[in-house]
Simulated assay, not measured.
Amino acid sequence: MGRLNAGTNEGKQHFCHQHVLKQIVNPTETLNCNACEKPNNGNKPFYGCSTCQYFLHENCFNAPRILNHSSHPSHPLTLHQIPSYAGGSYICNACGSVGNGFCFNCADCEFDIHLQCASCPSSILVDKHPHQLELHYGYTVDSEYVCDICFVMMNNDNWFYYCGGCDFASHLNCAIISPEVGVFPKQQRPNPNSSLNSHANAAVEMINSVNDDHDRLIAAQIRAQIEAQGRRAMLDLF
């Protein structure tokens, strides 16, 4: 199976498995990750339970339990070890393929995406095109796109990479030949107090404006009084 890292013999506990998972470095055989369903790639470390033959990539092991993703800004996504559907599988809303391993899920909307799809970069370069492609989370039914790499019609509900200047489109799996779990982008949610703060700031600005107007009015009245007194003094002299 591969040797265990001497510094991690105690291993780590993961919510998905009842036993402690120990780190495996330089595995000597192919190990399939139970989370993303992909085999080990190169010499990247795994966490595993040899008793149960249960393995996770290190990146999959460290995947967040809750993810705020730009593709589904209305609700946070929850990481599930087992699909919550009766059939034991799900259709990924990102790439359109079937998944049986871990998924990020929104139960309210029946929205599911693979771990590796959730960590797709927002932009990418491919060999088939000279410009950077931007990630899009589907398109309207009025539009139609054919993948410029495999020349197959794309589903408007699925994500794709696109260069607007050249009208060049690509499936996720065509752009990313060997997808793996990486950095998970986060949707920056608005501060719930931002509207309150903006109202408060507007109120302060209004008060300051009123105060400024009031100060200008008082100053004008004082100037008028001084000028009137000066005119009366000059008349007295004459």
Rank of each mutant, 00 (worst) to 15 (best):
G138A: 07
S143D: 13
V146G: 02
D148Q: 09
D148V: 07
F151E: 15
F151K: 15
V152R: 01
M153D: 06
N155C: 10
N156H: 15
D157F: 08
D157Q: 14
W159D: 04
W159N: 01
F160M: 09
Y161N: 06
Y162W: 11
G164S: 13
G164Q: 12
G164F: 07
G164V: 07
D167Q: 11
D167A: 14
F168Y: 08
A169W: 04
A169Q: 05
A169V: 03
S170D: 08
S170K: 02
H171F: 04
N173A: 03
N173L: 05
C174V: 02
C174P: 02
A175G: 06
I176K: 00
I176Q: 02
I177G: 00
I177V: 08
I177F: 01
I177Y: 00
S178T: 12
P179Q: 03
P179D: 01
P179F: 00
E180P: 00
V181M: 02
F184D: 04
P185N: 10
Q188K: 15
P190D: 02
P190Q: 03
N191W: 06
P192L: 03
P192V: 07
N193T: 13
L196V: 10
L196M: 10
N201A: 10
A203W: 07
V204Y: 07
E205K: 05
M206A: 15
N208P: 03
N208S: 13
N208R: 15
S209Q: 14
S209H: 12
N211D: 13
N211I: 08
N211R: 15
D212C: 14
H214V: 08
R216E: 13
L217M: 13
L217W: 10
I218A: 09
A219I: 01
A219R: 05
A219P: 00
A220E: 14
A220C: 07
